[in-house]
Simulated scan of single mutants.
Amino acid sequence: MGQIFEFIADAALEVLDDYYTECHVCNSTGVDLYTYQGKLMLEDGTVDDDIYAVCADCIKTQPLIPSGEWAYSQTIRDYLTAQQTTPQAYDALLQKLLKQYRQTPQLPLFLQYDDRPLCCNTLTEFTGYPADEKELFHITENNTYWEKQVAEKSEYMDFRKYGLPEGERDIAAFRCPACNKAYFTFQFT
């Protein structure tokens, strides 16, 4: 698991470039900033919805809500419903998973919608994008495909037969920190 963020491997973590120079939450400069499009719930009950670049400390400690939470929370609910938990366990797990999601930068870049795999009642760790064709084949042929849930791969995901995806970041790899099961997502433009 990542040292900076629990659900992003350090090797996969991307710091924003110099376009953003200060954290949009605490205004700190000279710190690494990470992609986080969302809103900050302010103490007076108002919302600052102009959040794009946030430091690690603020992501981990401030009341941030990613802009994709409204859709991803349904993925979490569907996952928990399939687990057939008690109502109390369902509520506790929902809050745990939402907290994990909120305290994680928006990596990988999901082109269509946030869709981080869930496993063993936890978020999975983003381990990176395939570095080359060989790694892409390995990931897509051996990892479990995820599309809002464990899903069957389309025959067109045979990238040896049908050609490579358009973008280098269309495929993202994940692993469960509890059981080590490997997953991948495929989102294209």
Results as ranks from 00 to 15, higher is better:
residue 46 T to F: 07
residue 46 T to V: 04
residue 48 D to A: 00
residue 52 Y to L: 10
residue 53 A to I: 08
residue 54 V to P: 11
residue 54 V to S: 06
residue 54 V to G: 05
residue 54 V to H: 03
residue 55 C to I: 01
residue 56 A to N: 08
residue 60 K to Y: 03
residue 63 P to G: 02
residue 63 P to D: 01
residue 64 L to G: 08
residue 66 P to D: 03
residue 68 G to M: 10
residue 70 W to R: 12
residue 70 W to V: 12
residue 71 A to I: 14
residue 72 Y to I: 06
residue 74 Q to H: 11
residue 74 Q to T: 09
residue 76 I to A: 05
residue 76 I to M: 12
residue 76 I to V: 09
residue 77 R to T: 10
residue 80 L to V: 01
residue 80 L to D: 03
residue 80 L to S: 01
residue 82 A to P: 04
residue 82 A to Q: 15
residue 84 Q to C: 10
residue 84 Q to G: 10
residue 85 T to S: 12
residue 85 T to R: 09
residue 87 P to D: 07
residue 87 P to W: 03
residue 90 Y to M: 05
residue 93 L to K: 10
residue 96 K to V: 02
residue 97 L to K: 01
residue 98 L to K: 04
residue 98 L to D: 00
residue 98 L to P: 02
residue 99 K to C: 06
residue 100 Q to N: 02
residue 101 Y to Q: 01
residue 101 Y to L: 10
residue 102 R to S: 04
residue 104 T to A: 00
residue 106 Q to P: 06
residue 106 Q to K: 07
residue 107 L to E: 15
residue 108 P to Y: 05
residue 108 P to T: 03
residue 112 Q to M: 11
residue 112 Q to F: 11
residue 114 D to E: 15
residue 118 L to V: 04
residue 120 C to G: 13
residue 122 T to D: 13
residue 123 L to G: 06
residue 123 L to R: 08
residue 124 T to Q: 12
residue 125 E to I: 12
residue 127 T to P: 04
residue 128 G to H: 01
residue 128 G to K: 02
residue 129 Y to P: 08
residue 131 A to V: 12
residue 131 A to I: 10
residue 131 A to D: 11
residue 132 D to H: 08
residue 133 E to C: 03
residue 134 K to L: 11
residue 136 L to Y: 03
residue 138 H to P: 00
residue 138 H to S: 12
residue 138 H to D: 14
residue 140 T to S: 08
residue 140 T to E: 02
residue 141 E to T: 14
residue 142 N to W: 05
residue 146 W to E: 04
residue 146 W to I: 00
residue 146 W to N: 07
residue 147 E to R: 12
residue 148 K to T: 13
residue 148 K to E: 15
residue 150 V to P: 05
residue 151 A to E: 09
residue 151 A to D: 09
residue 151 A to M: 02
residue 151 A to R: 02
residue 151 A to F: 04
residue 156 Y to Q: 13
residue 156 Y to G: 05
residue 156 Y to L: 14
residue 157 M to Y: 15
residue 160 R to L: 14
residue 160 R to V: 15
residue 161 K to S: 05
residue 166 E to I: 14
residue 168 E to T: 10
residue 170 D to E: 15
residue 170 D to A: 14
residue 171 I to H: 00
residue 172 A to S: 13
residue 172 A to H: 00
residue 173 A to P: 02
residue 174 F to T: 01
residue 177 P to V: 07
residue 177 P to K: 06
residue 178 A to Q: 14
residue 178 A to F: 10
residue 179 C to K: 06
residue 181 K to V: 10
residue 184 F to S: 08
residue 185 T to Q: 10
residue 185 T to L: 03
residue 188 F to Q: 15
residue 188 F to N: 14
